[in-house]
Write a protein that binds this DNA or RNA. Sequence first.
DNA 1: TGACATTATGTCGAAAATGATATATATTAT
DNA 2: ATAATATATATCATTTTCGACATAATGTCA
Lengths: 102, 102
Amino acid sequence: MNNRKKKNLEARGWKVGSAAEFLNLSPEEEAYVELKLKLSQNLQEYRKEKKLTQDALARLLKSSQSRVAKMESGDPSVSLDLLIRSLLTLGASRKTLSQMLL
Amino acid sequence: MNNRKKKNLEARGWKVGSAAEFLNLSPEEEAYVELKLKLSQNLQEYRKEKKLTQDALARLLKSSQSRVAKMESGDPSVSLDLLIRSLLTLGASRKTLSQMLL
DNA sequence: TGACATTATGTCGAAAATGATATATATTAT
DNA sequence: ATAATATATATCATTTTCGACATAATGTCA
């Protein structure tokens, strides 16, 4: 993993003590983080395509604007569950979700 | 949704008061439940391929046998997060995960 | 059959994720 | 520039999910 990606993740609050520690992320931990980032990005794209504000999406999801912001920023406090349920609410099919992972 | 699928879900503990209520699952709720069931099934297949007992897998995941059983049975108390992290720990790639969704 | 291994189910305190709220920081329009 | 709108960040009480444990049920094999 290059330094650029690392910095990006660190900026998003993934707690990584040092560069060494970070690079010691196991393959599955790394895959998990990447998965979340992909879904985060797709969620934001989906929302913008539909011309929704974060607040409007939050109401659809019965959530809050702040949580939508955290979803889109890849905040560690957001679970895959919430991301996926949000995408489904926005109308993503399983097929679409499947392609987001690649 | 046919009656067979409904019965299957009910047997797995998804709390649905009546048939009518059940059929009123929104499309995204239904997609979410199906997603979890697919991952559950794949997890069990993966585990058996590797000749692991639930207890052995639990140790790999730093979890417990009972939680593995719940994962595999599609128990509502199990999150997509845990299912996906488990599959990743078992060596599933994002590509493989992607195909599980279809 | 009975001993042994494996899986299922129920419960619980601890930990993590959640929506809500407040407020700071952009971004946009006039 | 400034008002209005949109997004980001921090904190917190509540809810959900968690591993652990006990124990029941099922399967396996001598």
